[in-house]
């Protein structure tokens, strides 16, 4: 039963992780830029949700679309004004540039919000579901806040999938991902697409931040941890595919849960990063084993 409980915990965590990684994977795939800012965007979204709840009383789940919209605007502006200038530069330059932006944003948040760990304490708390009340054979409990966050997170990822699959801007993004030069010959304005894609990535990060604000403590220092998770998920699931993000997120969640149980929670980061290096070496295309476009 314990194993089943750990598995369930891992899957709940993994769904939320998938929404963190979705935008990161999209930006990496389409712009060929590793967006170090992503973790800070998640934290920013979480702070927005925190203040919306404590000051205005807006429920974090209702705040998700607003966080997404605000972060979309920020992401669009940052990309159009700054990142677009180094879009064709070597890896080193775009990476160092977004690192510089992160230093700035984290420092701003540290000064504005202080380093205290905060958390959205929902009133009333959502409580837990004891599955054995309904199915006596299965003795596990499910925290409702995590379940709800996971459900919304998966909805978000599904929304991203729909956007890329069905809308004309989504098709343009996919076209740029496949071949940016061919796409621009087909009349796609790549500068706009890059900016919109970066905006969508930031929006996903902000939404994910709002979703995890009732679950995880919020602090400007947490941005690196979220970035690290996004990395691992992209490598686990394979770059640039929405299904890969789901698979990678759930895989990481389950892995962390079991790792924390077996080796102790303090080793979960070491474990996932060691796995990342091993995967990069032996299976750089990820668990699904193919390069994805959607």
């Amino acid at each position: 039963m314990l194993a089943l409980q750990i598995l369930v915990n891992g899957i709940l965590l993994g769904g939320i992780y998938a929404s963190i990684a979705g935008g990161f994977s999209l930006v990496w795939g389409v712009l060929n830029v590793i967006n170090i800012l992503h973790g800070s965007f998640v934290v920013l979204g979480a702070y927005m949700a925190f203040f919306a709840y404590t000051l205005l009383g807006i429920h974090p789940y209702l705040f998700v679309p607003i966080a997404a919209l605000l972060l979309f605007a920020i992401g669009l502006a940052v990309q159009y004004a700054i990142v677009n200038r180094v879009i064709d530069a070597p890896v080193l330059v775009s990476l160092t540039l977004t690192f510089g932006l992160t230093l700035f944003l984290d420092n701003v948040m540290l000064n504005a919000f202080k380093a205290d760990f905060r958390k959205v304490n929902l009133r009333p708390p959502l409580g837990i579901i004891d599955v054995s009340d309904y199915l006596p054979a299965i003795d596990i409990i499910v925290p409702v806040d995590r379940l709800a966050s996971m459900a919304f997170a998966i909805l978000l990822v599904a929304l991203l999938y729909w956007l890329l699959r069905r809308t004309s801007i989504g098709r343009a993004i996919v076209a740029v991902r496949m071949d940016r030069y061919a796409a621009s010959l087909m009349g796609v304005d790549t500068r706009i697409i890059f900016a919109v894609t970066f905006g969508i990535g930031a929006a996903m990060a902000g939404a994910a931040g709002a979703l995890l604000s009732p679950i995880f403590p919020i602090s400007p220092l947490a941005s690196t941890a979220y970035l690290g998770k996004a990395f691992v998920i992209c490598i686990l699931g394979g770059l640039g595919s929405v299904t890969g993000v789901l698979v990678g997120g759930v895989a990481l969640g389950v892995l962390e849960s079991f790792g924390a149980y077996i080796f102790g929670p303090e080793h979960s980061l070491t474990l996932s990063f060691t796995l990342l290096i091993l995967l990069l070496i032996f299976r750089p295309t990820g668990l699904l084993g193919k390069r994805g476009f959607i």
Binding site: A89, L97, G100, F104
Partner: peptide
Amino acid sequence: LSFHAGVLGLLIVALLVFLP
């Protein structure tokens, strides 16, 4: 002092954008 990391970040950005 209290904002040095942020200013350092801005300097890095300015350098890469204006003086690649």
